[in-house]
């Protein structure tokens, strides 16, 4: 099934939405150029640590970061986008990925554990989904702030993730679960792993749950609707992972593949924002090249 327009909001691209889309695209471009340089450097074997690229999924992290301020995030192994979208230091992230002592985790873990408490982001140990109950426990004792917990469609199948939905519902936690649903667990598609939908399960636990595509405005306005209520909610976001599960390599584009980045770029170009798009991409491209080259010299 093609999820490119799954439950997409049919919105007019008025001035307000164009400005919003530009802000989101700016973050998407920032993440993308960082990741592309990481990909190239890894491909050239300039470093060989554990790396999970989020190329293709940039719209999720960019939009969520713009939609909810002053929140706490618990990410998963594919967390570069969360870290960068929320203002984490890109220099420290490069250092972590190339194994330097000046990295977010002193070079201990590569991609999975990256964190920065100053931006409200906690790290992940590397076992998929195990941050979900931890996020719920955190939310239980810190209800004043919204806790955002990211996980993938593979992690969603972990028993402790499902148990956490029940707990969040019973304790009425102020938590937003976001499932980055790229339909793949490493390379195994969802249809080969389960016959149920995550939103149906979440709803049965009494959680407000929606299933949407990764269109930024669709994510943004759905979050705005949910944000007003301080109750547990789940957004399952259909997206496409462009690169390998781990390491540097490109996945074969499937029948229903789409690139949200290219779609958003096209929308902006069609709305006479070509100059903005080009200058944004150029800015981030130059910045990323310079950053990676400088940090790699430290190896």
């Amino acid at each position: 099934m093609n999820f490119q327009n799954y439950n997409i909001l049919k919105l007019s691209y008025n001035q307000k939405n164009i400005e919003l889309l530009k802000k989101i695209f700016f973050k998407m471009s920032y993440i993308r150029q960082f990741e592309l340089r990481a990909y190239e450097s890894r491909l050239e074997k300039k470093f060989e640590t554990l790396i999970y690229l989020c190329l293709g999924q940039e719209s999720i992290y960019s939009t969520v970061a713009l939609s909810i301020k002053n929140s706490i995030s618990f990410g998963q192994h594919r967390g570069h986008g969360i870290y960068l979208a929320n203002g984490g230091s890109p220099k420290k992230l490069v250092d972590e990925l190339i194994g330097l002592n000046t990295g977010t985790n002193k070079g201990m873990g590569g991609s999975p554990p990256i964190f920065d408490k100053k931006i409200g982001m906690y790290g992940h140990v590397g076992l998929i989904g195990d941050q979900v109950p931890v996020a719920a426990g955190y939310s239980l004792v810190n209800k004043s702030k919204k806790t955002i917990c990211y996980f993938g469609d593979g992690a969603a199948e972990e028993d402790y993730v499902l148990a956490t939905f029940g707990f969040a519902s019973q304790k009425k936690l102020n938590i937003l679960f976001i499932c980055d649903d790229n339909d793949l667990s490493v390379l195994t598609p969802t249809k080969d792993r389960r016959s149920w939908k995550l939103v149906d399960v979440a709803k049965s636990f009494g959680i407000n749950a929606i299933d949407i595509t990764d269109d930024p405005l669709t994510i943004y306005y759905n979050i705005k609707k949910i944000e007003k209520k301080n109750v547990p909610a789940l957004i399952n976001i259909r997206t496409c992972r462009e690169y390998w599960h781990e390491g540097a390599g490109k996945d074969k584009e499937g029948k229903y593949f789409w690139s949200r980045y290219k779609i958003v770029k096209k929308i902006l170009e069609n709305k006479n924002q070509e100059k903005f798009v080009n200058s944004t991409e150029m800015l981030h491209k130059k910045w990323s090249k310079k950053l990676w080259e400088k940090q790699l010299q430290k190896l």
Binding site: Y138, L140, F167
Partner: peptide, 20 residues
């Protein structure tokens, strides 16, 4: 806690990370 071992320990750890 509900009878959810594994997740249960996660809730406790989360409360610890949260400072309690």
């Amino acid at each position: 806690f509900p009878m959810t071992d594994v997740a249960g320990a996660g809730f406790a750890v989360g409360a610890a990370v949260g400072g309690r």
